[in-house]
Amino acid sequence: MKIRAEQLDERMAVSHVAGELDAYTAPDLRDALEAHLQQGTAWIIADLTSLTYLDSTGLGILVGTAKKCRQAGGDLAVACNRKNLLRIFQISGTHEILNVVETVEAARERLEALRAQREERTDGEATS
């Protein structure tokens, strides 16, 4: 499995993941996603468009990271367009909570929309 990090802006980053994600390779993904959080980036995209295999160990890493992102005021989105992987997200019921969409661009739009919603909510609370 290969992972490449990309910083999109000061608050949003992507981990581009290629290969197979199982119990052997999952620690590498956990470390890569954790590195974004350590650097203060809480809006994270997991780009799985070049990933060919995923199971419950990988799902566990993604769900755990999504939780940490939310605790830090951000969120996680997954870009995935492979039928066999989408089936795993659907069956496990993680499709919604992981914000799974087909492309990195769509994932970025999803996170930017969530960010705008939260900022609007915060502004509303501040003025009320």
Binding site: D22, A23, Y53, S56, T57, K83, N84
Partner: peptide
């Protein structure tokens, strides 16, 4: 598709 499903199931059992 069958094989993709079974690969995950077997790997889960082994994990």
């Amino acid at each position: 598709d069958d094989i993709d499903d079974l690969k995950v199931a077997v790997a889960e059992a082994c994990t």
